[in-house]
């Protein structure tokens, strides 16, 4: 059980590392160019991994609907936006606001899809996140 916990924490750390590194690259180039390098380097790394362990292109892949392939293009904008923001509002603010936005939009997506499990906790969570955001924004 220790290993999964360690891996899950490390995954979060690496999300921060890549945003920091891409942010640094965008200072010397541009956020979109940083996002391009992030994707092509990740693509090469995952290609090498997939070719060495096998199973890179599984059988079911051809059956996936076209919209399932939209994630990559959204990711380009996501990485570019993160690189642009981190140089302006810092790592903590970027991380917290992106997490907040992910949580609130996730609850909205659930509601749109008719999933209402854990609604009370979700609504309370959204309220806390919005209160936190309002606090960041109050005049000092």
């Amino acid at each position: 059980m220790t290993l999964p916990i360690l891996f899950a924490c490390l995954a979060g750390v690496l999300v921060g590392v890549s945003r920091q590194v891409n942010g640094r690259l965008s200072l010397s180039t541009s956020p979109l160019i940083a996002s391009f390098w992030n994707h092509i380097v990740g693509f090469v790394a995952l290609s090498i991994l997939g070719l060495s362990i096998g199973g890179l292109i599984p059988e079911g892949a051809a059956d996936a609907p076209w919209h399932a392939y939209l994630g990559g293009s959204i990711g380009v904008v996501f990485v570019a936006a993160g690189s642009w923001l981190i140089a302006r509002i810092g790592a903590v603010n970027t991380a917290l606001l992106v997490i907040g936005g992910q949580m609130v939009s996730g609850v909205a997506l659930d509601l749109l899809q008719g999933v209402s499990a854990g609604l009370l906790a979700s609504v309370l969570g959204v309220a806390l996140i919005l209160a936190g955001m309002a606090l960041t924004q109050r005049r000092r």
């Binding site: 936006a81 992106v98 907040g100 992910q102």
Partner: peptide, 20 residues
């Protein structure tokens, strides 16, 4: 701040599609 918050929404969409 709004841009960062909206970026979190992009992440939800991305995770949704990539998960599918």
């Amino acid at each position: 701040l709004l841009a960062a918050f909206g970026t979190g929404g992009l992440l939800t969409l991305m995770v949704h599609f990539n998960g599918e």
